[in-house]
Every structure is written in structure tokens, then in C-alpha cells.
């Protein structure tokens, strides 16, 4: 293989130097810190993130709501939102592990929100959507040139909301309301309770709950992001950061110069890029097989392949 990590200009293990922010962040606080810096410097004038019900209650006009009854929106349901300040960023921080259609706000960001320089965070497939929107802007007028910073998150697969509910409430035997943090790492699905309890589930349990659409995805590390990041490869509390594009290089360079992050060379940390490469290969190999299977799925009938 060799292309499994995509093109990147540099790769480090990093963590935010903002201690306050780290308390709210998933791992090294990369996304939150980078957006906070970009907002402060005017590199972006707003960012699309996955917020939640509490955020939506406080900032209703900043969210893309669905047709749910607001009172019935469950804990850990992501709500795409636009944030303009560090406080709002922190209010929305943390990985939700279920689908947040962030790209749904991409056009509106340039319309009623009046953004000229959009930041967006998303999964590898969402980064693909963003780049397709730039190159083939069929229904995305005046959007492409406004995308100022796209941050991608490493992603093995995503879950529908109901899957997270069943994983937490059935398998981990915890109420979603009581969960402080969820995480996938070290081959396990981790659920941390507000009272300090920790439940780990083997990943094989999670497989049946995965979103089927993820099984044709050939990108683990958000190859098309400006900067991509994830916990894999770095020690606890740190994140692996891959700087990919000219924009990414420039923003990351400025953030480093401003002291936003402390870093360690990726070669020096454990488990390092070796693990990232291994997982990327696993995902790509598995999903290529899925695609092959789809080609001969029926009797003389194939399922559609979006790549050809």
C-alpha cells in the first residue's frame, strides 16, 4: 500500500497548551484549540461543529435543527452549529460518536450567518463532501472559496444515534444522561460515567451497530482535510496531527508560532504512525472487500459503486 495516510506535509503528536480548554476536549484539544486560534486571528470568522442540545438551548439561532420536538432531543445527539467564539467552541467540544451532518450547514454559513471564511470539522467522508463541493459545486453556489479551514478527524466508522443508545444503555448498562465521555481506542469502546465509572466494550460488539454507509469508505485519516487529527498514534491526552494542504500548513505554522500547541515528533512517541498505518490499512482492506462484494452482490446484479 503506502497511500493509506494520504499526502501530508508534516505529522506530529500534539496537545493544546490551554489547560482550561483541555478539560473540555476529547484528546489533545486540537480541533477546539486550532479553531479558537483561527477565530481569534480572523483566519476564520465562524466554524461549523457538532454541538448538542444544551448548546442549542442557549444559542438557538446558531444551529441547524431537524424536525424533532426540542424537549425530546436526547443526550449525545449531535446538532450541527456555527460557533463564533471560544466560549461557544468549548460549549460544543468533544466527540459525539454518532452522525452529525455538519455539511448541511455549509451553504447556510455563507448565507444567513454571513460568514466569509468558514471553518469546518468533520469525518473523512465529510471532508470528501467539502472537496467535491469545491470542485463540483453543483448545488453549492459561492461556498467553495469561503472554506478557510477544514479539519478532518480520523474515523474508522460512525454510528447512527440509536446504535450509541443501545451500546451505552444495553451493553454498557449506563444511562446516556450519565455519560461524561465516549472514546474508541486501544481496540475498545470506552464509556466514562459522570461519577467516575469506566466501562469498556470490545469492538466486535460495536460492529453490528456501525453505519452501513461507512463500509465503502476508503479513507481513515481524512486525506482531504487541511489538517487531520485523531488520538490514534499518540499517547493518552495527546493527538496525532497531520498537516496536509497549503492552507493547513499556514494555519498550523501560525498556531505553533503563537504557542497554541506543544508537540513531540511523531517518530518519538508510542505507538506512533505505525499504528495509524496499520489501522488505516485494516479499514481500507476491509472496505475494499466490501466494494468487491457489492460488485457481485446479487445474481448477475451489482450494488452501486460510488467510485466508478
Amino acid at each position: 500500500m503506502g497511500a493509506e495516510l494520504g499526502n501530508y506535509k508534516s505529522c506530529v503528536s500534539a496537545r493544546s497548551t490551554d489547560k482550561e480548554l483541555l478539560k473540555h476536549a476529547q484528546d489533545g484539544g486540537i480541533v477546539t484549540s486550532l479553531f479558537a486560534f483561527a477565530l481569534e486571528e480572523g483566519i476564520i470568522d465562524g466554524a461549523i461543529v457538532a454541538a448538542n442540545k444544551e448548546f442549542a438551548a442557549k444559542y438557538p439561532s446558531k444551529c441547524m435543527m431537524d424536525n424533532s420536538n426540542f424537549d425530546m432531543i436526547e443526550p449525545w445527539r449531535p446538532i450541527p452549529a456555527i460557533v463564533n467564539t471560544k466560549a461557544e467552541l468549548i460549549a460544543a467540544a468533544g466527540t459525539k460518536y454518532n452522525i452529525s451532518p455538519n455539511v448541511s450547514l455549509l451553504k447556510e454559513a455563507t448565507r444567513s450567518f454571513g460568514l466569509d471564511k468558514i471553518g469546518i470539522v468533520g469525518t473523512p467522508c465529510q471532508m470528501q463532501a467539502v472537496r467535491k463541493a469545491q470542485l463540483y459545486p453543483i448545488g453549492m453556489r459561492d461556498v467553495g472559496a469561503s472554506i478557510a479551514l477544514a479539519v478532518g478527524i480520523f474515523c474508522m466508522e460512525n454510528f447512527p444515534y440509536q446504535s450509541i443508545l443501545q451500546l451505552v444503555e444495553d451493553h454498557a448498562a449506563m444511562k446516556l444522561e450519565s455519560v461524561k465521555k465516549m472514546e474508541i481506542g486501544k481496540g475498545k469502546f470506552w464509556v466514562y460515567g459522570k461519577r467516575g465509572q469506566v466501562v469498556q466494550l470490545p469492538l466486535k460488539i460495536t460492529h453490528k451497530y456501525e453505519q452501513p454507509g461507512c463500509h465503502v469508505c476508503l479513507d481513515y485519516v481524512a486525506n482531504l482535510a487541511d489538517v487531520s487529527t485523531g488520538s490514534v498514534g499518540s499517547p493518552d491526552g495527546w493527538s496525532t496531527v497531520m498537516v496536509r494542504s497549503k492552507i493547513g500548513d499556514s494555519v498550523w505554522g501560525k498556531a505553533m508560532a503563537a504557542g497554541c500547541f506543544e508537540t513531540q515528533p511523531i517518530e518519538k512517541v508510542k505507538p506512533g504512525l505505525e499504528l495509524v498505518t496499520k489501522l488505516a490499512n485494516e479499514k481500507i482492506t476491509k472496505n475494499k472487500k466490501t466494494l468487491e462484494g457489492r460488485a457481485t452482490f446479487g445474481v448477475g446484479k451489482a450494488l452501486r459503486n460510488p467510485y466508478i
Binding site: G46, S61, T110, R111, S112, F113, G114, D116
Partner: peptide, 29 residues
């Protein structure tokens, strides 16, 4: 595009008003 969602065929108008109000930032723009 800001007030109407899109400028050729507007997207923001609906029966009963508009889908969304605009942000302060959009107003400034």
C-alpha cells in the same frame, strides 16, 4: 443571498415568514 438564502431562486422565504433570521455578522456584511 444573505437575506433570501439564495439569490437567483430564493430559498429562505416560506409561508408565514422566512425560514431563518440572519446573524449580526450577516447584518454587518
Amino acid at each position: 443571498q444573505i437575506a433570501g438564502g439564495d439569490c437567483i431562486h430564493p430559498r429562505n422565504t416560506r409561508i408565514g415568514g422566512m425560514y431563518r433570521n440572519v446573524s449580526e455578522q450577516a447584518k454587518t456584511k
